[in-house]
Design a protein around this nucleic acid. Sequence first.
DNA 1: GCACGGAACCTGTCTATGCAAGGTAGCCAT
DNA 2: ATGGCTACCTTGCATAGACAGGTTCCGTGC
Lengths: 111, 111
Amino acid sequence: MDSNLVQFKKGVLELCVLALLARSDSYGYDIASRLSAAIDMGEGTIYPLMRRMQKDGLVSTYLVESSSGPPRKYYRLTEGGRKNLNDQKSAWTDFTRAVAAILDLDLEKTS
Amino acid sequence: MDSNLVQFKKGVLELCVLALLARSDSYGYDIASRLSAAIDMGEGTIYPLMRRMQKDGLVSTYLVESSSGPPRKYYRLTEGGRKNLNDQKSAWTDFTRAVAAILDLDLEKTS
DNA sequence: GCACGGAACCTGTCTATGCAAGGTAGCCAT
DNA sequence: ATGGCTACCTTGCATAGACAGGTTCCGTGC
């Protein structure tokens, strides 16, 4: 079926999270909600991801009290995270370009 | 590092193989060589993939003698394979578009 | 006060995929 | 007959997400 849609996301979720955080700090539930709308991501998926990214030094965290539930754990991009975003972004661009070249072999004419 | 490049490939390799076979029948080693050049795919990856695709009825096979090594196992797209190619291709297009929208939030203007 | 629902967090287990490394078999040239 | 090349195949491992469950905290209605 379209269960391979799941596979497409591998690695890209991290990139998307980095991109979101580059705009402004955010907390897990919010990130999950937004990405769940854009591409189809379950809420439970975000927390292991964020933990990994923190372990890898891409993000740092701080808590903010909330009047509607438990305190929110905000994530902020680190320097390394910002650099990583750029690297991954161009890697992704290159990759999709290469794939597009394979998919649309017909157009592959000009240099 | 760029080890996440590995993750980007998840699921997409199958799509690429389908696209190659849509042009003409081919055998494992040849497919692997070409995809290894385009995106960076290891040879050992192709055989489990082809087996899976055959099990899923996307390709059929036939042997052709070769004067330079063991007989080549050619793969041909089935009807289902061709349909699957179209489905996956549009799924991939949609997905990359969604990701691009997240990455380039700034440009996101005209519908 | 207490029960409920919802916000927000966390964890454990499963599956799919790709990779690296290894192993076989034929053919050709030295 | 040795080495090297094509071409095939297999196994064990690491990774990332999905899913289902569980927990804490708050506000509202009874």
